[in-house]
Design a protein around this nucleic acid. Structure first.
Lengths: 186, 186
DNA sequence: CATCTATTGTACCAAAAGGTACAGACTTAT
DNA sequence: ATAAGTCTGTACCTTTTGGTACAATAGATG
Protein backbone atom coordinates (compact mmCIF):
# COMPACT_ATOMS: atom_id res chain seq x y z
CA UNK A 1 0.00 0.00 0.00
CA UNK A 2 1.04 3.59 -0.48
CA UNK A 3 3.32 5.18 2.07
CA UNK A 4 2.12 8.73 2.50
CA UNK A 5 3.54 9.87 5.80
CA UNK A 6 7.06 9.16 6.83
CA UNK A 7 7.20 10.71 10.27
CA UNK A 8 4.97 10.14 13.22
CA UNK A 9 5.67 13.71 14.26
CA UNK A 10 4.19 14.95 11.00
CA UNK A 11 0.69 14.12 12.11
CA UNK A 12 0.93 15.42 15.67
CA UNK A 13 -0.18 18.93 14.72
CA UNK A 14 -3.19 17.52 12.90
CA UNK A 15 -4.05 15.33 15.88
CA UNK A 16 -3.69 18.36 18.14
CA UNK A 17 -6.17 20.31 16.08
CA UNK A 18 -8.63 17.42 16.09
CA UNK A 19 -8.50 17.11 19.87
CA UNK A 20 -8.79 20.85 20.28
CA UNK A 21 -11.88 20.88 18.12
CA UNK A 22 -13.60 17.75 19.36
CA UNK A 23 -12.15 17.01 22.77
CA UNK A 24 -11.00 13.57 23.82
CA UNK A 25 -14.33 11.78 23.81
CA UNK A 26 -15.62 13.69 20.82
CA UNK A 27 -12.67 12.83 18.61
CA UNK A 28 -13.78 9.48 17.26
CA UNK A 29 -11.43 7.29 15.29
CA UNK A 30 -13.43 7.94 12.16
CA UNK A 31 -12.92 11.68 12.61
CA UNK A 32 -9.24 11.11 13.26
CA UNK A 33 -8.74 8.93 10.21
CA UNK A 34 -10.45 11.51 8.02
CA UNK A 35 -8.47 14.43 9.44
CA UNK A 36 -5.09 12.72 9.25
CA UNK A 37 -5.72 10.76 6.10
CA UNK A 38 -4.37 7.70 7.88
CA UNK A 39 -6.25 4.43 8.24
CA UNK A 40 -6.59 2.56 11.47
CA UNK A 41 -3.67 0.40 10.45
CA UNK A 42 -1.25 3.30 10.36
CA UNK A 43 -2.76 4.99 13.37
CA UNK A 44 -2.34 1.96 15.59
CA UNK A 45 1.07 1.38 14.12
CA UNK A 46 2.21 4.80 15.29
CA UNK A 47 0.17 4.83 18.49
CA UNK A 48 -0.34 1.29 19.78
CA UNK A 49 -1.98 2.75 22.86
CA UNK A 50 -4.81 4.24 20.84
CA UNK A 51 -6.36 7.61 21.52
CA UNK A 52 -4.79 7.99 24.91
CA UNK A 53 -1.31 7.64 23.50
CA UNK A 54 -2.16 10.10 20.76
CA UNK A 55 -3.16 12.74 23.29
CA UNK A 56 -0.08 12.08 25.40
CA UNK A 57 2.07 12.54 22.32
CA UNK A 58 0.29 15.75 21.40
CA UNK A 59 0.67 17.07 24.95
CA UNK A 60 4.37 16.27 24.87
CA UNK A 61 4.73 18.12 21.60
CA UNK A 62 2.87 21.13 22.97
CA UNK A 63 5.01 21.17 26.06
CA UNK A 64 8.09 20.97 23.85
CA UNK A 65 6.94 23.93 21.82
CA UNK A 66 6.31 26.06 24.89
CA UNK A 67 9.59 24.92 26.40
CA UNK A 68 11.46 26.18 23.37
CA UNK A 69 9.43 29.27 22.54
CA UNK A 70 8.34 30.47 25.95
CA UNK A 71 9.80 28.84 29.05
CA UNK A 72 13.47 28.77 28.06
CA UNK A 73 13.51 32.36 26.78
CA UNK A 74 11.89 33.43 30.03
CA UNK A 75 14.56 31.62 31.99
CA UNK A 76 17.66 32.45 30.04
CA UNK A 77 17.30 36.00 28.85
CA UNK A 78 18.92 38.94 30.59
CA UNK A 79 16.23 41.29 29.30
CA UNK A 80 13.21 40.01 31.23
CA UNK A 81 10.93 42.74 29.96
CA UNK A 82 11.61 41.76 26.39
CA UNK A 83 11.24 38.05 27.15
CA UNK A 84 7.83 38.59 28.71
CA UNK A 85 6.62 40.60 25.78
CA UNK A 86 7.93 37.92 23.48
CA UNK A 87 5.88 35.46 25.50
CA UNK A 88 2.74 37.45 24.91
CA UNK A 89 3.55 37.66 21.22
CA UNK A 90 4.00 33.91 21.08
CA UNK A 91 0.78 33.28 23.00
CA UNK A 92 -1.17 35.61 20.76
CA UNK A 93 0.09 33.80 17.69
CA UNK A 94 -0.24 30.32 19.14
CA UNK A 95 -3.86 30.77 20.13
CA UNK A 96 -4.58 32.52 16.87
CA UNK A 97 -5.56 35.70 18.69
CA UNK A 98 -8.18 33.87 20.72
CA UNK A 99 -9.79 31.74 18.05
CA UNK A 100 -7.93 28.62 18.99
CA UNK A 101 -8.64 26.73 22.19
CA UNK A 102 -5.95 25.66 24.65
CA UNK A 103 -5.97 21.87 24.60
CA UNK A 104 -4.35 21.64 28.01
CA UNK A 105 -6.95 23.92 29.56
CA UNK A 106 -9.80 22.10 27.85
CA UNK A 107 -8.55 18.73 29.06
CA UNK A 108 -8.23 20.14 32.57
CA UNK A 109 -11.95 20.85 32.60
CA UNK A 110 -12.95 17.50 31.12
CA UNK A 111 -13.49 14.14 32.77
CA UNK A 112 -10.29 12.81 31.23
CA UNK A 113 -8.34 15.14 33.48
CA UNK A 114 -7.06 12.32 35.65
CA UNK A 115 -5.62 10.40 32.73
CA UNK A 116 -3.46 13.35 31.73
CA UNK A 117 -3.13 14.94 35.14
CA UNK A 118 0.64 14.90 35.19
CA UNK A 119 1.15 16.56 31.83
CA UNK A 120 -1.52 19.15 32.59
CA UNK A 121 -0.14 20.05 35.99
CA UNK A 122 3.43 20.22 34.73
CA UNK A 123 2.54 22.57 31.90
CA UNK A 124 0.95 25.20 34.09
CA UNK A 125 3.40 24.80 36.94
CA UNK A 126 6.38 25.37 34.68
CA UNK A 127 4.71 28.32 33.02
CA UNK A 128 3.85 30.11 36.25
CA UNK A 129 7.28 29.39 37.72
CA UNK A 130 9.40 30.62 34.84
CA UNK A 131 7.19 33.67 34.42
CA UNK A 132 7.45 34.50 38.12
CA UNK A 133 11.25 34.31 37.96
CA UNK A 134 11.30 36.69 35.03
CA UNK A 135 9.06 39.12 36.89
CA UNK A 136 11.40 39.00 39.87
CA UNK A 137 14.23 40.07 37.60
CA UNK A 138 12.16 43.14 36.77
CA UNK A 139 12.06 44.18 40.40
CA UNK A 140 8.90 42.51 41.70
CA UNK A 141 9.19 40.96 45.13
CA UNK A 142 9.03 37.19 45.27
CA UNK A 143 5.39 36.97 46.42
CA UNK A 144 4.38 39.81 44.11
CA UNK A 145 5.99 38.05 41.18
CA UNK A 146 4.32 34.74 42.01
CA UNK A 147 0.91 36.38 42.28
CA UNK A 148 1.33 38.36 39.09
CA UNK A 149 2.50 35.29 37.17
CA UNK A 150 -0.58 33.45 38.35
CA UNK A 151 -2.78 36.34 37.28
CA UNK A 152 -1.24 36.32 33.84
CA UNK A 153 -1.48 32.61 33.09
CA UNK A 154 -4.95 32.48 34.55
CA UNK A 155 -5.89 35.57 32.58
CA UNK A 156 -4.79 33.93 29.36
CA UNK A 157 -6.88 30.84 30.07
CA UNK A 158 -9.88 32.87 31.15
CA UNK A 159 -9.52 35.04 28.09
CA UNK A 160 -9.65 31.99 25.89
CA UNK A 161 -12.78 30.71 27.62
CA UNK A 162 -14.59 34.01 27.36
CA UNK A 163 -13.50 34.69 23.80
CA UNK A 164 -14.70 31.29 22.73
CA UNK A 165 -17.93 31.58 24.69
CA UNK A 166 -18.73 34.96 23.19
CA UNK A 167 -17.34 34.09 19.78
CA UNK A 168 -15.41 37.33 20.05
CA UNK A 169 -11.65 37.10 19.71
CA UNK A 170 -11.20 40.74 20.68
CA UNK A 171 -11.88 39.76 24.28
CA UNK A 172 -8.72 37.70 24.23
CA UNK A 173 -6.68 40.39 22.54
CA UNK A 174 -7.84 42.98 25.07
CA UNK A 175 -6.94 40.63 27.92
CA UNK A 176 -3.41 40.25 26.60
CA UNK A 177 -3.05 43.98 26.13
CA UNK A 178 -4.09 44.62 29.73
CA UNK A 179 -1.72 41.98 31.05
CA UNK A 180 1.14 43.58 29.13
CA UNK A 181 0.53 46.82 30.97
CA UNK A 182 0.85 45.12 34.35
CA UNK A 183 4.37 43.84 33.72
CA UNK A 184 6.29 46.83 35.08
CA UNK A 185 6.51 47.07 38.89
CA UNK A 186 4.86 50.14 40.38
CA UNK B 1 -44.26 0.74 38.50
CA UNK B 2 -42.99 2.80 41.38
CA UNK B 3 -43.22 6.54 41.10
CA UNK B 4 -40.12 7.92 42.76
CA UNK B 5 -39.68 11.40 41.40
CA UNK B 6 -42.50 13.83 41.06
CA UNK B 7 -40.76 16.86 39.65
CA UNK B 8 -38.60 17.14 36.61
CA UNK B 9 -36.79 19.99 38.30
CA UNK B 10 -35.73 17.65 41.09
CA UNK B 11 -33.23 15.92 38.88
CA UNK B 12 -31.77 18.99 37.19
CA UNK B 13 -29.09 19.49 39.85
CA UNK B 14 -28.05 15.86 39.51
CA UNK B 15 -27.92 16.18 35.74
CA UNK B 16 -25.87 19.34 36.14
CA UNK B 17 -23.33 17.53 38.25
CA UNK B 18 -23.12 14.68 35.77
CA UNK B 19 -22.45 17.01 32.85
CA UNK B 20 -19.94 18.97 34.88
CA UNK B 21 -18.06 15.79 35.70
CA UNK B 22 -18.25 14.04 32.36
CA UNK B 23 -18.95 16.69 29.77
CA UNK B 24 -21.60 16.32 27.10
CA UNK B 25 -20.07 13.48 25.13
CA UNK B 26 -18.70 11.76 28.19
CA UNK B 27 -22.03 11.65 29.99
CA UNK B 28 -23.49 8.47 28.54
CA UNK B 29 -27.08 7.50 29.16
CA UNK B 30 -25.92 4.65 31.34
CA UNK B 31 -24.03 7.09 33.56
CA UNK B 32 -27.04 9.38 33.64
CA UNK B 33 -29.46 6.63 34.60
CA UNK B 34 -27.17 5.52 37.40
CA UNK B 35 -26.65 9.02 38.75
CA UNK B 36 -30.30 10.03 38.62
CA UNK B 37 -31.76 6.67 39.51
CA UNK B 38 -34.15 7.06 36.60
CA UNK B 39 -34.54 4.57 33.77
CA UNK B 40 -34.53 5.53 30.15
CA UNK B 41 -38.30 5.48 30.21
CA UNK B 42 -38.51 8.30 32.73
CA UNK B 43 -35.59 10.18 31.25
CA UNK B 44 -37.11 10.32 27.80
CA UNK B 45 -40.47 11.08 29.28
CA UNK B 46 -39.07 14.20 30.95
CA UNK B 47 -36.66 15.08 28.16
CA UNK B 48 -38.01 13.85 24.84
CA UNK B 49 -35.12 15.60 23.12
CA UNK B 50 -32.56 13.38 24.84
CA UNK B 51 -29.23 14.59 26.13
CA UNK B 52 -29.37 17.87 24.28
CA UNK B 53 -32.63 18.83 25.96
CA UNK B 54 -31.21 17.81 29.31
CA UNK B 55 -28.26 20.14 28.92
CA UNK B 56 -30.50 22.97 27.73
CA UNK B 57 -32.66 22.48 30.80
CA UNK B 58 -29.64 22.46 33.08
CA UNK B 59 -28.27 25.60 31.43
CA UNK B 60 -31.61 27.32 31.90
CA UNK B 61 -31.62 26.37 35.55
CA UNK B 62 -28.08 27.65 36.02
CA UNK B 63 -28.93 30.90 34.32
CA UNK B 64 -31.97 31.19 36.56
CA UNK B 65 -29.85 30.69 39.65
CA UNK B 66 -27.35 33.35 38.62
CA UNK B 67 -30.16 35.65 37.61
CA UNK B 68 -31.63 35.46 41.10
CA UNK B 69 -28.46 35.29 43.17
CA UNK B 70 -26.06 37.42 41.18
CA UNK B 71 -27.38 39.43 38.24
CA UNK B 72 -30.48 40.93 39.84
CA UNK B 73 -28.74 41.91 43.07
CA UNK B 74 -26.05 43.59 40.98
CA UNK B 75 -28.68 45.49 39.05
CA UNK B 76 -31.07 46.48 41.78
CA UNK B 77 -29.00 47.28 44.83
CA UNK B 78 -28.08 50.82 45.82
CA UNK B 79 -24.99 49.58 47.61
CA UNK B 80 -22.92 48.41 44.66
CA UNK B 81 -19.88 47.63 46.76
CA UNK B 82 -21.87 45.25 48.89
CA UNK B 83 -23.57 43.67 45.89
CA UNK B 84 -20.24 42.94 44.23
CA UNK B 85 -18.86 41.35 47.36
CA UNK B 86 -22.02 39.31 47.65
CA UNK B 87 -21.37 38.17 44.09
CA UNK B 88 -17.91 36.95 45.01
CA UNK B 89 -19.35 35.17 48.04
CA UNK B 90 -21.93 33.47 45.85
CA UNK B 91 -19.34 32.51 43.25
CA UNK B 92 -17.03 31.07 45.88
CA UNK B 93 -19.83 28.96 47.26
CA UNK B 94 -21.26 27.96 43.90
CA UNK B 95 -17.95 26.70 42.57
CA UNK B 96 -17.17 25.06 45.88
CA UNK B 97 -14.11 27.23 46.35
CA UNK B 98 -12.66 26.10 43.04
CA UNK B 99 -13.33 22.39 43.23
CA UNK B 100 -16.34 22.52 40.99
CA UNK B 101 -16.12 23.22 37.30
CA UNK B 102 -18.21 25.82 35.50
CA UNK B 103 -20.43 23.89 33.11
CA UNK B 104 -20.95 26.91 30.88
CA UNK B 105 -17.23 27.51 30.57
CA UNK B 106 -16.51 23.84 29.94
CA UNK B 107 -19.15 23.67 27.21
CA UNK B 108 -17.70 26.80 25.65
CA UNK B 109 -14.40 25.00 25.14
CA UNK B 110 -15.96 21.79 23.84
CA UNK B 111 -17.07 20.84 20.37
CA UNK B 112 -20.71 21.09 21.42
CA UNK B 113 -20.28 24.83 21.75
CA UNK B 114 -22.37 25.54 18.68
CA UNK B 115 -25.33 23.57 19.94
CA UNK B 116 -25.55 25.66 23.10
CA UNK B 117 -24.00 28.82 21.70
CA UNK B 118 -26.94 31.05 22.59
CA UNK B 119 -27.19 30.02 26.22
CA UNK B 120 -23.43 30.23 26.67
CA UNK B 121 -23.13 33.67 25.10
CA UNK B 122 -26.09 35.04 27.02
CA UNK B 123 -24.76 33.87 30.35
CA UNK B 124 -21.43 35.67 30.05
CA UNK B 125 -22.84 38.70 28.33
CA UNK B 126 -25.35 39.30 31.08
CA UNK B 127 -22.76 38.72 33.76
CA UNK B 128 -20.23 41.20 32.34
CA UNK B 129 -22.94 43.77 31.66
CA UNK B 130 -24.58 43.78 35.07
CA UNK B 131 -21.19 43.75 36.78
CA UNK B 132 -19.97 46.68 34.68
CA UNK B 133 -23.06 48.70 35.61
CA UNK B 134 -22.44 48.05 39.29
CA UNK B 135 -18.82 49.15 38.92
CA UNK B 136 -19.96 52.36 37.26
CA UNK B 137 -22.07 53.10 40.30
CA UNK B 138 -18.89 52.89 42.35
CA UNK B 139 -17.29 55.66 40.34
CA UNK B 140 -15.51 53.82 37.56
CA UNK B 141 -15.77 55.41 34.14
CA UNK B 142 -17.81 53.52 31.59
CA UNK B 143 -14.86 52.01 29.71
CA UNK B 144 -13.00 51.34 32.94
CA UNK B 145 -16.01 49.53 34.37
CA UNK B 146 -16.44 47.45 31.23
CA UNK B 147 -12.80 46.44 31.23
CA UNK B 148 -12.77 45.63 34.92
CA UNK B 149 -15.93 43.55 34.65
CA UNK B 150 -14.35 41.60 31.83
CA UNK B 151 -11.23 41.07 33.91
CA UNK B 152 -13.29 39.77 36.79
CA UNK B 153 -15.46 37.28 34.92
CA UNK B 154 -12.50 36.11 32.90
CA UNK B 155 -10.46 35.87 36.08
CA UNK B 156 -13.07 33.63 37.64
CA UNK B 157 -13.09 31.32 34.64
CA UNK B 158 -9.32 31.26 34.39
CA UNK B 159 -9.08 30.60 38.10
CA UNK B 160 -11.33 27.59 37.72
CA UNK B 161 -9.25 26.24 34.85
CA UNK B 162 -5.97 26.66 36.71
CA UNK B 163 -7.29 25.35 40.00
CA UNK B 164 -8.63 22.27 38.31
CA UNK B 165 -5.48 21.78 36.25
CA UNK B 166 -3.26 22.02 39.31
CA UNK B 167 -5.68 20.25 41.58
CA UNK B 168 -5.23 23.16 43.93
CA UNK B 169 -8.33 25.03 44.98
CA UNK B 170 -6.31 27.73 46.71
CA UNK B 171 -5.45 29.13 43.29
CA UNK B 172 -9.12 29.93 42.80
CA UNK B 173 -9.51 31.40 46.26
CA UNK B 174 -6.48 33.62 45.78
CA UNK B 175 -7.84 34.78 42.43
CA UNK B 176 -11.11 35.82 44.03
CA UNK B 177 -9.31 37.59 46.85
CA UNK B 178 -7.25 39.61 44.38
CA UNK B 179 -10.29 40.53 42.33
CA UNK B 180 -12.04 41.78 45.44
CA UNK B 181 -9.21 44.21 46.03
CA UNK B 182 -9.61 45.70 42.57
CA UNK B 183 -13.22 46.74 43.07
CA UNK B 184 -12.60 50.21 44.46
CA UNK B 185 -11.68 52.91 41.91
CA UNK B 186 -8.21 54.37 42.34
C1' DC C 1 -64.43 1.84 42.64
C1' DA C 2 -63.57 3.03 37.93
C1' DT C 3 -61.17 5.58 34.86
C1' DC C 4 -57.62 8.35 33.24
C1' DT C 5 -53.19 10.22 32.82
C1' DA C 6 -48.54 10.57 34.42
C1' DT C 7 -44.71 7.73 35.18
C1' DT C 8 -41.66 3.66 34.84
C1' DG C 9 -39.09 -0.85 33.62
C1' DT C 10 -37.92 -3.95 30.04
C1' DA C 11 -36.87 -5.40 25.73
C1' DC C 12 -35.24 -4.04 21.66
C1' DC C 13 -32.77 -1.59 17.73
C1' DA C 14 -29.39 0.11 14.27
C1' DA C 15 -25.35 2.61 14.28
C1' DA C 16 -21.03 3.74 15.89
C1' DA C 17 -17.57 3.13 19.15
C1' DG C 18 -12.50 1.54 20.03
C1' DG C 19 -9.63 -1.98 18.96
C1' DT C 20 -7.37 -6.36 16.69
C1' DA C 21 -5.56 -9.31 12.97
C1' DC C 22 -3.22 -9.76 9.10
C1' DA C 23 -1.93 -9.97 4.41
C1' DG C 24 0.09 -7.16 1.20
C1' DA C 25 2.93 -3.48 -0.57
C1' DC C 26 6.37 -0.18 -0.30
C1' DT C 27 11.58 1.29 1.15
C1' DT C 28 15.85 0.47 2.31
C1' DA C 29 20.14 -1.82 3.04
C1' DT C 30 22.68 -5.40 1.46
C1' DA D 1 17.53 -8.39 -6.46
C1' DT D 2 16.45 -9.90 -2.32
C1' DA D 3 15.59 -9.98 2.32
C1' DA D 4 14.10 -7.21 6.38
C1' DG D 5 11.58 -4.17 8.27
C1' DT D 6 8.27 -0.33 7.83
C1' DC D 7 3.98 1.12 6.71
C1' DT D 8 -1.13 0.70 5.23
C1' DG D 9 -5.94 -0.97 3.81
C1' DT D 10 -9.57 -4.23 4.75
C1' DA D 11 -12.25 -7.15 7.26
C1' DC D 12 -13.81 -8.27 11.46
C1' DC D 13 -14.89 -8.30 16.52
C1' DT D 14 -17.21 -7.00 20.91
C1' DT D 15 -19.21 -3.53 23.51
C1' DT D 16 -21.54 0.53 24.03
C1' DT D 17 -23.91 4.22 22.19
C1' DG D 18 -28.38 7.18 21.91
C1' DG D 19 -32.90 6.27 21.11
C1' DT D 20 -37.76 3.83 20.54
C1' DA D 21 -41.82 0.96 21.69
C1' DC D 22 -44.85 -0.41 24.75
C1' DA D 23 -47.14 -2.75 28.27
C1' DA D 24 -47.66 -2.34 33.19
C1' DT D 25 -48.50 0.28 37.17
C1' DA D 26 -49.09 4.07 40.25
C1' DG D 27 -51.61 7.93 41.89
C1' DA D 28 -55.19 11.42 41.08
C1' DT D 29 -59.96 12.46 39.87
C1' DG D 30 -64.50 11.74 39.48
Amino acid sequence: MARLVSERSDILPVLGEVFREHGFEGASLSIITKATGLGKGSLYHFFPGGKEEMVQAVLAEIHGWFEREVFEPLEKTKDADKAINTMFDAVLKYFNSGQRVCLVGALALSNTRDTFANAIRQYFKRWVMTLARALEKLGHSKPEAKALAEVMVLGIQGGLVLARASNDATIFKRAIKRLRLSVKPT
